[in-house]
Amino acid sequence: MAPPAPRTGDAVFANVERVNAELFTLTYGAIVRQLLTDLEEVEEVNKQLDQISIFRGYNIGIRLIDEFLTKSNISRCVDFKETAEVIAKAGFKMFLGVTASVTNWDADGTSCSLVLEDNPLVDFVELPDTCQGLYYCNILSGVIRGALEMVAMKTEVTWIRDMLRGDDAYELRVKLLKQVPEEYPYKDDE
Rank of each mutant, 00 (worst) to 15 (best):
F13Y: 13
Q179G: 04
L26P: 00
I160L: 08
E82Y: 11
D168W: 05
L116G: 06
E183N: 11
S111R: 15
V151N: 03
R18F: 03
T25K: 12
D50P: 00
G142W: 08
V157N: 00
S72E: 15
F92K: 03
T27S: 10
A88V: 01
G91M: 11
R76K: 14
D189W: 15
Y28S: 06
Q179L: 13
S101K: 09
G146K: 02
V78Q: 15
S72K: 09
L35R: 03
T99I: 15
D10M: 11
D38W: 08
A2S: 13
Q132A: 07
D129T: 11
P6E: 06
L140R: 00
D123L: 05
A88G: 02
E126N: 11
V102T: 10
V12N: 01
K93M: 13
D66S: 12
F13M: 14
T99P: 05
A90V: 15
G133K: 14
Y28D: 08
V16P: 04
A14R: 14
R56Y: 10
D118S: 05
L177F: 10
I65M: 12
M153W: 01
F55Q: 09
L127V: 04
Q51S: 02
T25M: 09
L64V: 03
V115G: 05
Y186C: 12
N104A: 09
D188H: 14
L36T: 06
L176E: 02
M94P: 03
Q179Y: 14
V157M: 06
R63V: 01
L39E: 14
E22C: 02
E22G: 07
L127T: 04
T37F: 08
